[in-house]
Amino acid sequence: MKVLIGGYTKKSSKGIYELPFAGTDQTARLGEAENIIQVSDPTYFQKDGALIFTINKPNNDEGGISVFKLEDGQYHEVDTYLTPGSSPAYVGINRDKHLLYTANYHTGIISVFKYDENGELTLLDKDKHEARTLGPRPEQDSAHPHFFDETPAGNLVCCDLGNDTVEFYHLNKQNKLEHLATFKSEAGFGDRHIVFNKKGDCFYVAGELSSKITAVKFNEDDWKFEEIATYSTIPADWTEHNGAAAIRISKDGKFIYVSNRGNDSIAVFAVNDDDTLKLVQRISVEGSFPRDFNWDESEKYVVVANQNTDNATLYLRNAETGALTTIQKDIKVPEGTRVEFEE
């Protein structure tokens, strides 16, 4: 097993790094990071077999997606799709349908791509978010889509930090995006990322600007929404800056995890039978500015990347309690913002 970490390339990073994984339980360790792909600002990427689809910002005028394929032990670039302006902030994937979904925070554009077996990209459709319900915070100066991926029923969902909204779409048979519904969060919430429960009738949206999670019952047939409750990801007495970032839910649907950039922690919540949440733990990331974290297929091991301190931390996860235990810290990896396990 290996761990891939990518991020910004503003300082010493050269792109995407691979870290070997060895040992089990308390003796599990990550080895030295090796640069396997040289690419500019791979702040988010997805993997499908020998293919890696990564954000790329090769110059000041353009940004987009690049595709690398593993051949003879080396990754080679097979395609790149660039557009004027900034690069996307998020890449989603459907490996069965060979679809990619990108959200561009700065340009306000969400896009759907098709890719073939070799990784070559075809743009199917895109939509530009407008500044319709902008929040009151300085960061909400425009529409800012920060996430674009699939719902449990196979529709598409986008979190818009600028508009404080969650937008739902359908990709029709003509491969065109049709807008279906909007959920409006409280002003200044700053919707960033979202996860869904196992039944597919409740979602949990993380607000970057508010450092909160809102639980919402919903129905993908009639698109009715019902807010259940909202929870803080940071302590009540925290007065310094914080931005909630990644949110993940365990496969059994029993636990939710959110990273805090500022409080520099991962908040762990238990999911109750009625879809409400209960705080289990806040654990230090042993570094600064944890934008992303991820787990292996068994969800036994968790790795978080700390962007500002150029390090990662490895945890052991208790599947019964949801709690994390730090088993390795100060793992050197530069400017990390994205974590992906490779089994």
Rank of each mutant, 00 (worst) to 15 (best):
V3R: 05
L4M: 06
I5L: 06
I5D: 10
L19Q: 04
P20R: 03
D25A: 15
G31S: 14
Q38F: 04
K47P: 06
N59Y: 00
N60A: 07
E62A: 04
L70E: 10
E71W: 03
D72I: 02
T80E: 04
Y81A: 00
L82N: 06
G85C: 05
N94E: 15
K97T: 05
L99Y: 13
L99E: 09
T102V: 02
Y105I: 04
Y105Q: 08
S111R: 03
S111V: 03
V112T: 10
F113P: 07
E117G: 03
E120F: 01
L121T: 06
L123S: 08
K126S: 15
A131K: 11
R132C: 12
L134Q: 11
R137Q: 05
E139C: 09
S142D: 13
A143L: 05
T151F: 10
P152L: 15
C159L: 14
D164C: 04
V166P: 04
V166C: 01
F168C: 04
Y169D: 01
Y169L: 02
H170I: 03
H170G: 01
E186C: 05
D191N: 05
H193E: 11
F196W: 02
N197K: 00
G200T: 01
D201L: 01
F203I: 09
A206M: 00
S211P: 07
I213G: 00
K217H: 12
F218N: 02
F218D: 00
N219L: 04
D222S: 03
D222L: 01
D222F: 05
E226T: 12
E227T: 14
A229P: 13
T230C: 11
T230V: 15
P235G: 01
H241T: 13
A246Q: 07
I247C: 08
I249Q: 02
G253T: 06
G253K: 06
K254M: 05
F255K: 05
N260M: 14
R261N: 04
R261D: 02
N263L: 13
S265K: 11
D275A: 13
D275Q: 11
L277I: 15
S284E: 06
V285S: 10
V285Q: 13
S288I: 10
F289E: 13
D292L: 11
V302Y: 12
N306G: 10
N306H: 07
T309F: 11
D310N: 12
T313Q: 08
R317N: 08
I331S: 06
V333F: 01
T337L: 00
R338W: 10
E340G: 01
